[in-house]
Design a binder for these strands. Sequence first.
DNA 1: ATCGTCCGGTCATTATCTTAAACATTCCTG
DNA 2: CAGGAATGTTTAAGATAATGACCGGACGAT
Lengths: 194, 194
Amino acid sequence: MDFQFDIGARLKAMRSAAGLSQRQLAERANVPHAQISNVEKNKVSPSVSTLRRILSGVGVSMADFFEPEREVPPGPFFEADQLLDLTSKIAVNAIGEGTGRMAFRQIGDARSHNLQILHEVYEPGADTGETLLQHPSSEGGYVVEGELEVTVDSEIRVLRAGEAYLFDSRQPHRFRNPSDNRTIVISACTPPYL
Amino acid sequence: MDFQFDIGARLKAMRSAAGLSQRQLAERANVPHAQISNVEKNKVSPSVSTLRRILSGVGVSMADFFEPEREVPPGPFFEADQLLDLTSKIAVNAIGEGTGRMAFRQIGDARSHNLQILHEVYEPGADTGETLLQHPSSEGGYVVEGELEVTVDSEIRVLRAGEAYLFDSRQPHRFRNPSDNRTIVISACTPPYL
DNA sequence: ATCGTCCGGTCATTATCTTAAACATTCCTG
DNA sequence: CAGGAATGTTTAAGATAATGACCGGACGAT
């Protein structure tokens, strides 16, 4: 999680792709043109607010700007510690008022393979709440250890180790660990959630 | 291009999802804990370098952090000016040493529909160069106006208005406007490039 | 109650970014 | 060649963010 690209070079590339001079961009973005120069030459690390204004001038979002910094896991084989931890990301993007500790770790590059396989850990009581993202995708999983209460579109079922589920993720769904022990699930989803 | 979320709230959510205190995160991220507090309370707009350090502590990339800011076009109908301008993004991410002016505008939300339809404009001489991204996807297009020289895996062909192409984008490919007039193409790709 | 430790928040100082104005270059054009 | 208009760069000021020390509250253990 530490590759970083050359912000200045990237901004410069985007600016010239848009066919703008530093001054033209500065006007659109409502920043002094010196700042464009400073950022492009990496003389400063701009504040988020400044960078946002600048990028608005070339019609690029922050997310798109930093896209290349995304970690691209290697493969096709992964050590246990090479799984990509998506806990914070999923917890904030996909889960509503989840409670309790849980962890999600992804195998490889879900995007390019169009397949997201996750190793999921639910501590006792952990609850995703009603899942926010309801993708047009398919989703299934296998309970490796412990118990998992799965709710799909008003059907509730407690799955134990060895049992499994599979459904269309457009249906509202929710996961919970109703037991006093840790629950471990391996799940798969295509196309990927995030 | 101007929705902005609450950076502080988002960081806080991610931090607690990771089960860390401000001080714990501060140590991991190598930042004074006061700064975590300041950022979470939106007392400052952190510099990119600072935010990057903080996010490394929760294992989230900049791109992921700003993901929700991405523009999600409405639909299912789009006015001409509602097409999403991807010029800078594509030019920098997908195209190598392209030359000349070109523009790419996307119809709707390619990701969720798994289908990317683009309105492409090539000014005279515009050349994508060898395309960098060679996705496992399919790609086709129709020349609406002007001429387009398409190179696919060593096959070269000049298409005129009314003609079209379709190929597997894993093959190396390249587009060029060899004429003195503007060229307009409507293309489609699944799954999307970006 | 009284430590000890953790928590998040605040303060003054320092370092950094931001700004506007001046500067240097190039490329036209008369 | 001189003037003009564009370009990107540097400068010195003012504004803002980053830092480390400090504060009061919450919680447990003694």
